[in-house]
Design a protein around this nucleic acid. Structure first.
Length: 491
RNA sequence: GCCGGCUUAGCUCAGUUGGUUAGAGCGCUAGAUUGUGGAUCUAGAGGUCCCCGGUUCGAGACCGGGAGCUGGUACCA
């Protein structure tokens, strides 16, 4: 302990927490759990097995994110183990999966199908619905090549969105192909790898900035609202035209988009192959019952950098959500995936094609909870009116619990009114009131708080309010559990 | 990371050209109601005016630096 900390006049520590790691209240936790349950049920049904690989990986196994001297914490949370090796918290479930498959290559069945649900960590600037720890729900197939596996993943993505509560038409899976993107860049004469990266990132901004913004980013650069300038890719006008024409070549139906792309001039061989793959994916999606409303081909989808090698896709929730202040906001992408044929091969040298999909559960849950403002139902509260009857009150609460009802005996030291306020705050469905009167008669008084609140809405006169005791009734002790059960079941 | 804005009570904010004891609404606690959540009335609690330094007789206000929050942008493997 340092000298400063020991000084008697020292300040108290400030109650605060690092940003991007929000405290989660009961409603958010409940939403997250139910999302994880329903999404993993989809994965399970499609034949994927659960696998948990734990939070830490060696940084070299995780990817290229060695802690460098300039920004030691860029992207990941890394620390040095006691053997001096750098380890880092996983930033997704795919990289650890690749390591696991490579490490257990002889043991795992091929194709290897597994799902994973759990927190991942990214050391980035947090924002609304962007956290530094969040739950991802992942499904991946390793050892599968060809469009059938990708089509399956897209279908699973659609089902996962529905499992998450998106109705038909409330979500869309946007699909594109890295092969086609590579082809079109070649056609446009963008050959330098670094420049290709800049171009891809510019194209990815299409849904955000539109044709105008992307044109600026492909050319000289773009000025943002604050006046800061984002460096452009430095392309000339006719190069930009080729790329803009491409990303805007989306049609209403997948088949029509494929036809358009197939007929476009100057497509390279690998690009043509990508287009042919999309055609096959379309056929399989139709067979799986995934229509043009659920999955579209969108040439402006890019997703990330070198990681993906073939078809890529993004899941978007189209419903309007609200932030904590009630302002409407578009959630954007809540899931994504694609083909990554090189990730396992990185460890092994031999080809190991793979494709996968991931849902960002925390973002979804936060948006749903903020929008829905759903309160978790509290426990039935047994009021304590006579301190010498604690054993009796404890028995009442216990009887309710034995019947499977959330119940607690009030343990504070306040009078009846604060106890009622407490029940109100906990969103309790009912309170059990037993005082001298009830004890003499061998009954309990039950107050249905929701019914009471509803009945009291019109009452403005305090006398009437007190006299009426809305939602309140007496019943024999033997009927307490049954009567409360109907109240709890109703609310 | 880069650019902008902001920081005064739990929350939302006011605070005059720099002037003595820093305010409001809401919320919270208690009482009116010795056994009832709402409403009303009354009372009360609650503040290092983000931090450090400077200018000044005097700083919540002005100047410099820092931190935090927030928006945009970048990154998002």
């Amino acid at each position: 302990m340092s000298k400063d900390e020991q000084q008697p006049g020292d300040r108290r520590p400030e109650a605060r927490k690092p940003r991007g790691f929000p405290d989660k209240a009961a409603a958010v936790i409940a939403t997250e759990r139910s999302l994880v349950d329903s999404i993993t049920a989809v994965y399970q049904r499609w034949g994927f097995d659960a696998l948990d690989t734990g939070p830490f990986e060696y940084v070299d196994a995780l990817g290229k994110f060695l802690p460098d001297t300039d920004r030691p914490n860029a992207g990941v949370f890394a620390l040095q183990d006691d053997d001096e090796q750098w380890i880092a918290l996983r930033y997704d479930h795919t990289a650890p999966l690749a390591r696991y498959v490579a490490e257990n290559w002889e043991r795992v069945p091929k194709p290897f199908r597994r799902y994973s649900a759990g927190p991942v960590w990214r050391n980035e600037k947090p924002g609304p619905f962007r956290f530094r720890e969040f739950i991802q729900c992942d499904a991946d197939s390793v050892g599968v090549a060809g469009p059938a596996a990708d089509a399956e993943m897209i279908a699973i993505a659609a089902e996962a969105m529905q499992a998450a509560g998106a109705a038909r038409g409330e979500y869309v899976i946007r699909v594109n192909s890295r092969q086609i993107l590579d082809g079109i860049m070649e056609t446009a004469g963008v050959l330098d790898p670094a420049q290709r990266g800049t171009v891809l990132r510019a194209l990815d901004k299409f849904d955000k900035f539109g044709v105008e913004g992307v044109t600026l980013l492909l050319g000289k650069g773009r000025k943002d609202e604050s006046g800061d300038i984002t460096q452009g890719a430095g392309l000339v006008a006719n190069q930009i035209d080729v790329l803009i024409e491409f990303i805007t070549s989306r049609s209403v139906t997948r088949a029509e988009t494929v036809r358009k792309l197939a007929n476009s001039t100057g497509m390279t061989r690998s690009g043509a192959q990508g287009v042919a793959e999309l055609g096959e994916i379309d056929a399989i999606l139709n067979a799986l019952g995934i229509g043009d409303d659920a999955a579209v081909f969108d040439p402006s989808i890019v997703r990330g950098l070198e990681y993906y090698t073939g078809p890529v896709f993004e899941a978007e929730f189209l419903r309007e959500f609200h932030d904590a202040d009630g302002n409407p906001m578009r959630l954007g992408s809540v899931g994504g995936g694609g083909r990554y044929d090189g990730l396992v091969a990185r460890f092994r040298g031999e080809p190991a094609p793979a494709t996968g999909f991931s849902v960002g559960v925390s973002r979804l849950a936060a948006a749903m909870a903020a929008t829905g403002e759903e309160k978790v139902q509290g426990p039935v509260l047994v009021l304590v009116l006579d301190k010498d009857q604690l054993a009796d009150y404890a028995t009442l609460a216990s009887d309710l619990r034995h019947a499977g009802i959330r119940a607690e005996m009030y343990l504070g030291s306040s009078g009846m009114k604060p106890q009622m306020k407490y029940a109100d705050r906990r969103n309790s469905p009912a309170v059990v009131i037993v005082g001298g009167n009830e004890r003499e008669k061998g009954v309990v008084t039950i107050k249905d708080l929701n019914a009471g609140a509803a009945a009291a809405k019109g009452v403005t006169d305090n006398e009437a309010w007190r006299a009426e005791r809305p939602g309140q009734f007496e019943c024999p002790r033997s009927e307490m559990v049954a009567r409360i059960k109907t109240i709890v079941g109703r609310s």
